[in-house]
Design a protein around this nucleic acid. Structure first.
Lengths: 161, 161
DNA sequence: ATAAATACCGAATGAAATTCGGTGAAAACG
DNA sequence: CGTTTTCACCGAATTTCATTCGGTATTTAT
């Protein structure tokens, strides 16, 4: 087993766990994960196998959580994006709230600080469906009230880069 | 050139522009875009070339906007997720707001209905960086005020499926 | 100083994407 | 209706790419 060391690596990977090339790779993949290793490697001055090994490590170590296709909300029949603030009495409503994960219209669930307890991001087919969802939320024990913010235009929407 | 017709297709693709197999493919890709066409095809009863053609069409027609890797916010040094509501006087602040797209910490910008005008989703390295961002926002002409909601826990975070 | 670990490369291999006719069924047309 | 066109599919062939495999140089630990 390797012994402890108190010295930091001089070059390459530091405390963050990745070096500059890793960082650039992550950025490239976050923008477009369909490019070939050879292609990205040329941009970053690495051979395809070298890129492959780095990406494999970045996945194994959890820097890359998943690789997915981003769908167009409107095209798939859910043009109505909104954020819903949910106020609850105490934290008892947290667990039933997680059940909303089952609904595919619900994209995000966060507990937050501030003048509300939970923020939901949802994408609905229309106002009727949104109203139904709100009804369902109010049925949850401990829900005091909600405020809804319907998106008019989306100027930017992306993941961490 | 084909003449007009007033009849809908009986089976297969309808007004939505995709059929059941397309829909399933989209769901699969939104969850994991690394699977092979052969693999997904087996699940959906299609040959690899058939899957390939469908995916190509779904991309061309805009159902699939992009294929990207999702990075871990904490791992890449941005553990502080928050939503910022921005109130403005009139809509003059909209354009300068779009300039925030340049900052890679800013992930979403929406104009919304409700008791605020704009909602930002941002992921910051820490509280200091968040304060700096707020200072920058307040410097924008027409910004009346902001409210910030810092995420404590994220129970769900995904794209449209 | 020496041993161990790491990151890289070029070459070889394997798997997957992509291309290419060919077929059958449905839709459009007259 | 019968005919033509379009469409989605398949199996086989091809090509591109991911992946594996030594081998080397550099760095890190002992």
């Amino acid at each position: 087993m390797p012994k402890e060391t108190n010295r930091l690596r001089e070059n390459g990977r530091t405390k963050a766990g990745f070096d500059e090339k890793d960082r650039m790779l992550l950025r490239l993949l976050a923008q477009d994960a369909t490019r070939s290793y050879a292609d990205m490697g040329a941009q970053i001055h690495l051979s395809p196998p070298a890129v492959h090994e780095r990406v494999k490590r970045l996945k194994r170590d959890g820097y890359i959580r998943a690789t997915v296709s981003l769908l167009d909300g409107e095209k798939i029949g859910r043009p109505l994006l909104s954020f819903i603030h949910v106020d609850t009495t105490g934290w008892g409503a947290k667990s039933p709230m997680r059940a909303l994960s089952e609904l595919e219209e619900v994209e995000e669930i966060h507990t937050v600080t501030g003048d509300t307890c939970v923020i939901l991001k949802v994408r609905m087919p229309g106002t009727q469906a949104l109203e139904d969802l709100l009804a369902r939320i109010y049925r949850i024990e401990g829900v005091k009230g909600t405020r809804s913010y319907v998106a008019l235009s989306t100027y930017l929407e992306r993941g961490p880069t």
